[in-house]
Design a binder for these strands. Structure first.
Lengths: 231, 231
DNA sequence: CTAGCCGATAAACATAGGTTATTTGGGGCT
DNA sequence: AGCCCCAAATAACCTATGTTTATCGGCTAG
C-alpha cells in the first residue's frame, strides 16, 4: 500500500516538471539521471556563473535571469522555479550579459560536463521546456510593453501560481512568494513604490491576500479578467 | 574581372545573413538550397499563417512578430528583415498566439515541407541565428521594461541599422525605414503621439535626420550613449 | 532589553507618457 | 487643376507611474 505513493512522493522535482512537456518513460528518466552530476548550494544574492559551468536543474529555491544597465537599472527577464533548467537553451549560454541571480538560498544539480539531451523522447521533452520558457518571455514582453501595473501584477501572480502548482508547491490558491517587492518591481518594469501601491489596491479590492510572504489569490476570475493576455 | 563580384552580388540574402553566424561552405549552401522550395509574395498588412505552413526565409520586405490583446492593444515582439528566417525556431511554431504580420509587400521562400537543418555546420549556423534572435528579444525586454522613450528609440534604430548593414541595405548611416510611426509605437510600447514627439526631439537635438522614410543616424556616439544596454 | 536594520507602508509632489482633437503636407486619382 | 486620403506634426490637457522622504513593525545581534 505504500510503494506507488512513496515512489511518486520522491520523484525528483525536475522530472515532475519535465513530464509536463511530454511523456517520459522509466528509461528516459534513467537516461536523464545518468547525465546529471553533482549537487551544489548557493546563498541568496549569489550571482551564478553560467558561461563556464555546465547547465543545471534548480532543486529548490527561486532564481531569476536578469540584465543590468550601467546606471543600475535592472530588468528581470524570467523567474526560475524549482525543477526548471538553467543554461540548457541558447538563451542563457549566449555571450549576452544575462545574469543568473539567486533570489533565495538555492540547491542545484549540475549536468555532466558533456551533457547532451539524449534519446528521442527526452530531447522532445527538452524542446518543449524550452518552448514553454520562450512563451513565458513573450507574455512578459506583452506585460512590459502594453499592460498597466495592475494587469502586469495579476498576470505574473497567475503565472507563478500555475508554475508552482505543477510541482506541488501550492495549497489551493495560496503559495509562498519568497521575494521582496523590489524584485517584483524589477521584473514588472515598475518602481518599488508603485508595486506596493498596486498590491495594496489588489488587497483592498479583494483580489489577493498577503500575510508575510504567503500569497493567496482570492478572486481568480477577476485576476484573469485583468490580465487578459489572450488574442 | 566580373566573375567574383558578380557572384557575390547575386548571393541570396538569407545566405548572406546566415554567414554571420558561422562559416558556410559551398556544400552547406547547396544543402540549404536543396531544402528550399517555392517562393511566394504577400501584400502589406497580410497576416501570415505559420502553424500550418513550413518555415520560410524573407527575401524582401519587412515583417514582424506580434501579440494582440483582446481590447486591441498590440505588442510587436520582433522585426523580421530580409534574409531572416520565420518559423524555424520553437518560438513562432508554438501554439502561442504569435502573429506574423507583413509590414510591407513581402517576398518569401518556403522550406520544403519536411525541412531539417541538415549538416553539422549548417545546423550550427541555424542555432546561431536562433540565439541572435533570442538575444534581440532580451534587448527588447530591457527596452520595454527599463528604458525611456528616447533610449528605446535610439537603441532600436541602432539595431535596425546594424541588421540592415549586414545585408547591404544601408548607405553609410542612412537606411530606408518603411514603417509607419504607429508600428514603431507598437514595437516600443509607446503611444503614436509620443513616438512622434520623441522623433522630433531626436531631430531637434541633431541625433537623426528623417526625410520621408529615409532615416539617417547623424550622431552615433550620442545614440549609443543614450541606448546604454551594456552591463 | 535595546539598538539597529530591513522591508513594508504611506504621503506629497513631480513628470513622462497617454489621450483627444486639430492642422499640415504630400502624393495619387479624377 | 482640384480633391482625397493618409500619415506626420502639433497642441492642450490628463493620468499613471516615478521620486523623495518619513514612519512603522518585526527581527536579530549583542
Amino acid at each position: 500500500m505504500l510503494g506507488a505513493p512513496a515512489q511518486r512522493a520522491i520523484e525528483k522535482v525536475y522530472v515532475r516538471r519535465l513530464r509536463r512537456f511530454g511523456p517520459m518513460q522509466d528509461d528516459d528518466v534513467s537516461a536523464l539521471e545518468a547525465r546529471l552530476g553533482r549537487m551544489e548550494a548557493y546563498a541568496a544574492g549569489k550571482d551564478l556563473e553560467l558561461t563556464t559551468s555546465p547547465p543545471m536543474f534548480l532543486l529548490s529555491g527561486w532564481a531569476c535571469l536578469a540584465h543590468s544597465l550601467r546606471d543600475g537599472r535592472r530588468q528581470i527577464l524570467a523567474f526560475v522555479l524549482p525543477g526548471d533548467g538553467i543554461g540548457f537553451d541558447l538563451l542563457t549560454r549566449s555571450q549576452r550579459s544575462v545574469e543568473v541571480l539567486a533570489l533565495t538560498p538555492l540547491k542545484v544539480r549540475y549536468a555532466q560536463p558533456g551533457f547532451v539531451a539524449g534519446a528521442e523522447r527526452l530531447s522532445r521533452v527538452f524542446a518543449g521546456a524550452a518552448a514553454a520558457q520562450q512563451g513565458r518571455m513573450i507574455d512578459h514582453m506583452v506585460r512590459l510593453g502594453r499592460q498597466t501595473a495592475l494587469e502586469r501584477m495579476a498576470h505574473l501572480l497567475l503565472e507563478l501560481h500555475a508554475r508552482l502548482a505543477e510541482i506541488g508547491e501550492t495549497r489551493g490558491e495560496s503559495f509562498h512568494l519568497p521575494i521582496k517587492q523590489e524584485i517584483l518591481a524589477d521584473a514588472l518594469g515598475l518602481s518599488l513604490v508603485h508595486v506596493n501601491r498596486t498590491l495594496q489596491q489588489m488587497r483592498r479590492e479583494g483580489l489577493i491576500d498577503m500575510r508575510g510572504s504567503q500569497m493567496t489569490l482570492l478572486d481568480r476570475a477577476a485576476l484573469e479578467a485583468a490580465s487578459d493576455q489572450s488574442s
